[in-house]
Design a protein around this nucleic acid. Structure first.
Lengths: 331, 331
DNA sequence: TTGTAAGCGTTATCAT
DNA sequence: ATGATAACGCTTACAA
């Protein structure tokens, strides 16, 4: 049996109150008592029961993170950054991955996470759960519009879309295709599409956005890109919605003997450390993951402390110029 | 204020006990009471307080996961798999990333995770924490020898090392270098090195293992690989300790105009879905991430239920043959 | 400076 | 079939 406060108290010949005081450095205590108690704690190898404290304090010091999957490097790096900063603030992290699974998402939101965490950071994609019964739980969203009351942290998707499209146009592409997520979804990432389409029109080019569902299996997606080159043989530029897709396109192009960047210019999106180090040649838009994490926590803390917050926080993106967007890179 | 059991009881004109019974489907209840209580629950939008339950039951239904970083795809995919299966078993997941930070690791182990979780799955690399005060907490380790009492789940590192080395030798490499982690560390991954060295000797080749610390920053590591090619200009094969390193070597080779696979054969390690889809040409050893996750949870549950377990569970690996190990792939 | 007792929100035992 | 009460392990008013 694990020792409890009472065991320590008995051993040190004091009351539970006194032990609690020593533990929490509260009130007046004689040095003698402090030593006595500490010794008993030592001897019994006592550790306070966190759950009992949580119950009394009505605070768990846990933040819930709800994201599609940490297996994707963007979310992996984001979660990593969030966990790191939260740890520094004295919080632990309870994590749920809800990819492919609407039931799981609502499960986490409504049942599991609520009332077990002091706050929630959400970045899931699924539809159909607009009306969370989130009660009084402080929530912030990352790159996801959930609700009027929930602040959104996002990178500048519009700017990112412009950067990407302009890069392709400036390097000489004309028949540029853009892949994007399902258009019904209420997500800031849709602004990339708007930026793309506006930029195309400004240059008298015809936008062509292709909608791809998340969660399409690898092989199926590969087939889609194969077909894409059949359907649009003239395509000479692609602005992919993320780096994984871009990598796949790169692969398909290779297999089809389409040369990049000579015949096809390519720009990805996300720019994680991971893809930048594995695929440094891929031009991509870098989302400021660390800053987004920091901001999300900042705003969440404000919410927890009942302070005022804005509805939306937009952080600047950067472009990473690799070789997939430079026609003259091998000249 | 959030409603509690008592509020529901009052509203339904019953006792707390009865409400609790309805909630947990226990004992005899008249349908009338059940309906009455459920209605009150509905009306108040009541949700049980998880922490109070945890205190009473002495069970949190949370499993702690302690890994270096989910930003690395291997751990990202592993954590993803663990979370998925644990969720199916009714557990949530508390996660700690301890990369670069021994203090954080021991913090998580000793303070945060103990008594707040029902069990722990550990896969951290740091040294110096052999003597965890893990009390009675059920623990299993993944790819890490922690202690006599703690079962280890691992993939067949020896076999993996043999696969990789043999592949390089069979394809004609003679001066093969192997990179590995710090040799002081007590980790099953060291068996890759042993397998490599034994296999080399069996073929009358001279093994050359280069030790690399984890946590070396990207640029520095790149420099190390640059220097490696200067120091060993004759190298014609590399067995890298992981795919990230392999990708970096690929990059350095490209910059130095060393052709892969013509001048240099390369085999990585880990074979995550991520790297296999981004870099399908890289030959690598696939660790069975899903099976490892499943086994780890299996064994952990046995520990939680005080059942007997073995000390070590070794799962088979596979080789993924890309183009970086095939001299004739472009013939 | 230290101790007593009530309370955090549940569940289970033992009555009735 | 339902209810009163103690218990889970801790913290803090309030008392001494």
């Amino acid at each position: 049996m694990r020792p409890k406060l009472e065991d320590v108290a008995k051993r040190a010949n004091v009351s539970k109150t006194t032990v609690s005081r020593v533990l929490n450095n509260r009130g007046y205590l004689s040095q003698k008592t402090i030593d006595k108690v500490n010794q008993a704690i030592e001897e019994l190898n006592y550790q306070p029961n966190v759950v009992a404290r949580q119950l009394y304090n009505k605070k768990t010091n846990i933040i819930g993170l709800l994201f599609p999957t940490v297996a994707n490097p963007f979310f992996g790096e984001l979660v990593e950054a969030l966990e790191k900063k939260l740890y520094e603030d004295g919080y632990k992290v309870l994590i749920g991955n809800s990819m492919n699974n609407t039931k799981k998402e609502s499960d986490y939101l409504n049942q599991l996470l609520s009332e077990q965490v002091d706050g929630l950071i959400v970045g899931t994609h699924n539809q159909g759960i607009q009306e969370y019964k989130y009660q009084n739980l402080p929530i912030v969203a990352i790159d996801r519009v959930m609700n009027e009351d929930i602040p959104v942290i996002e990178s500048d998707n519009y700017q990112g879309g412009r950067f990407a499209t302009k890069e392709l146009i400036e390097q000489g592409a004309k028949n540029i295709i853009h892949t994007n997520g399902p258009s019904e979804l209420e997500t800031p990432a849709k602004r990339r599409r708007i930026a793309y389409e506006e930029t195309m029109k400004e240059h008298d080019l015809i936008p062509n956005t292709i909608t791809l569902d998340f969660n399409i299996p690898y092989q199926e997606k590969k087939k889609i890109f194969y077909d894409l080159f059949e359907t649009y043989p003239d395509v000479d530029g692609i602005f992919a919605s993320n780096d994984m897709d871009a990598a796949l396109i790169l692969q398909v192009a290779k297999e089809k003997r389409i040369r990049v960047p000579e015949d096809l210019l390519l720009v990805g999106y996300d720019g994680t450390l991971m893809t930048r180090s594995i695929l440094p040649d891929l031009t991509t838009i870098i989302q400021p993951i660390d800053e987004m994490a920091e901001m999300a926590i900042d705003i969440l803390m404000k919410r927890i402390n009942k302070k005022e917050t804005e509805k939306e926080y937009i952080l600047p993106v950067k472009i990473w110029r690799g070789k997939t967007s430079k026609k003259d890179s091998y000249k």
